[in-house]
Design a protein around this nucleic acid. Structure first.
Lengths: 235, 235
DNA sequence: TCAAAAGTGTTCGGACTACACCCATGA
DNA sequence: TCATGGGTGTAGTCCGAACACTTTTGA
C-alpha cells in the first residue's frame, strides 16, 4: 500500500452535542464517561472514527447507540484539534450538533451509557474541551435559528404555537410578544392547522399545528425573521 | 506513553481556499501540485498537520509559505473526511478559507509553488474533493457577506464605494442599484471619508474611504443588510 | 458641449412593533 | 362571573426599493 511518508497520523473522534426540548426548557444530553481517563465524569457522547467510515456515519452511529434514533437533524459544527485537548493522546474531534424531539428519545431508554438530560443553563462541567463545544453549538443554534426554521426539529409532530414560542424564548432566553409571534410564524405558510386543541396548558386551548414538510424543505434556506432585533441576541 | 488501544490513526491535512479581488473580479489562488499523486495538476494549497501544531497554526503556516502574508482573515470552513477522498492513503482535511487583498500578495511573489490566480468562474478542475471545497467556501462567503462586513478584508486600505460595489456584485454575480448601495454602506458608519478621489475609473472621480477598524470589529457580529433580497442569492 | 459615472432627493409600499381589545373555557 | 391564556385588529413608524434628477469633469 502506498502511503505518504514521514507524517504523523492522529486519532480521530466525533462528538455529538445533542439538544432537546421538553416543552418548557432546552436541554442537553450528556453521558457519564465509561473509560479512562476522567472515568465517571460528564462528557458529550462520542466515539472514534472507524477505518471505512465517514464522519457523518460515525456521528449517526454514535447518536443511534445512545438514543436509538435515526434520521435526526445533524450538522457538522467544527473540528477541535488542539494538540493537548486530550491528555492521553492527541485526538482530533469533529463535533456535530443534533436536534431531537425529547419525547421520541424517552421511548428508547438505554441506560448503558448513564445518559442524562440537563437544563442547558445548569449542565455539569464536562471533560476536555466539551464545554467549549457546547458553547459554540449554542451560539450556532441561536444564529441559525434566527434565520432558518430549524427549531421545528425539536418539536413533536403536532405542537401549538405557544409551545413553539416557549422554545424560541428558551433558545434566546427572553420573551416575545405572543400576538406578534403567532402572526409571524403563521405568515411563513409552513404550518398546517389541525382540528384539535391542546387543553393542557390553558382553559381556552391552543390549536395544534403540523409542519408542512414540503414547504419546510423548500424554504429551509430562505431567510426568515423569527425573532425581532436579532442583533440583540447574536452579538 | 499512554494511548487509546485498538484504534486507527489517520493522516490529517489542512487546505486553504484563498480568495482575492483585483478590483474587477473575484479570484481564487491555486497551485500546481508538486508531489505525487496528481503531480502537476491544480490543487488548493495545503499541508500536513504537524505533531505540536493546532490546525489554525497549520493553516496560517501554509498561507504564509505561499503568500508571505500574516494576520490574514481566515476561518475554519469544514472538515472533509470521506474515507476515499485521497487515493494514496486515507487523509482527513480541515479546510480553511482566507480573504486577502490581492495587491498585498503581488508584492510577495514566490514562484516556488507555481501558484496562479484564476477567475472563480473559470478555474481549472482541481484534484480530490477540492472543487467541492471551493463550492462550499463560495457559498459560505455569500452567506456570511450578506450579513457581516466581511468583504472589506479583500480590499486595500483605501477604496471607493464603486469598487466595493463591484466586489459585492462579483460575489453575488449580479448588479445592484449604485445609488441605494452607497447610501446603505455609508449608513453603517463603518467608513471614513478621505479627501482624495480616485480618478482612474471615472471623470468625476469617486472619493476614497477607509474602514473604521474599531467600529468594524465592534460591529462585525451585527446583522447588516448589504444586499437586497438575500433570499434570491442564498437558497 | 456632451457623455458617463458619482451621488442626492423623493416617493411609495410593505414589514415590524406596540398595544387595545375580543374569545373561549374551567374553576 | 372572573381569571387566564389564546388570538385578532389596527395605527404608527421605519426601512428598503425604485427611480428622477443633479454634479463633476475629461474628451
Amino acid at each position: 500500500m502506498h502511503r505518504y511518508s514521514g507524517q504523523t497520523r492522529i486519532l480521530v473522534a466525533v462528538d455529538c452535542i445533542i439538544f432537546g426540548f421538553d416543552g418548557f426548557d432546552i436541554k442537553l444530553l450528556v453521558i457519564q464517561r465509561g473509560i479512562k481517563p476522567e472515568k465517571n465524569k460528564w462528557s458529550l457522547m462520542g466515539g472514534f472514527l472507524q477505518p471505512e467510515e465517514s464522519p457523518e456515519q460515525a456521528a449517526n452511529r454514535v447518536l443511534k447507540q445512545l438514543t436509538g434514533l435515526e434520521g435526526v437533524y445533524m450538522e457538522q459544527l467544527q473540528t477541535f484539534a488542539d494538540p493537548h485537548r486530550d491528555p492521553v493522546e492527541r485526538t482530533l474531534s469533529i463535533a456535530y450538533f443534533a436536534l431531537i424531539d425529547i419525547h421520541q428519545y424517552e421511548k428508547q431508554i438505554s441506560d448503558e451509557y448513564h445518559a442524562e438530560w440537563f437544563l442547558l443553563k445548569d449542565k455539569p462541567e464536562l471533560i476536555f474541551d466539551h464545554d467549549e463545544m457546547v458553547r459554540i453549538a449554542q451560539k450556532e443554534l441561536r444564529y441559525k435559528a434566527a434565520l432558518h426554521p430549524l427549531l421545528f426539529e425539536l418539536l413533536p409532530q403536532k405542537f401549538t404555537i405557544p409551545q413553539l414560542q416557549s422554545l424560541y424564548e428558551g433558545v434566546y432566553d427572553t420573551v416575545f410578544d405572543n400576538r406578534n409571534f403567532s402572526r409571524k410564524v403563521l405568515s411563513t405558510g409552513l404550518l398546517i392547522k389541525q382540528k384539535e386543541k391542546d387543553k393542557m396548558n390553558s382553559k381556552k386551548g391552543a390549536f395544534y399545528y403540523k409542519l408542512d414538510k414540503k414547504k419546510y424543505k423548500a424554504n429551509f434556506q430562505a431567510f426568515l425573521n423569527f425573532i425581532p432585533n436579532p442583533d440583540k441576541f447574536l452579538s
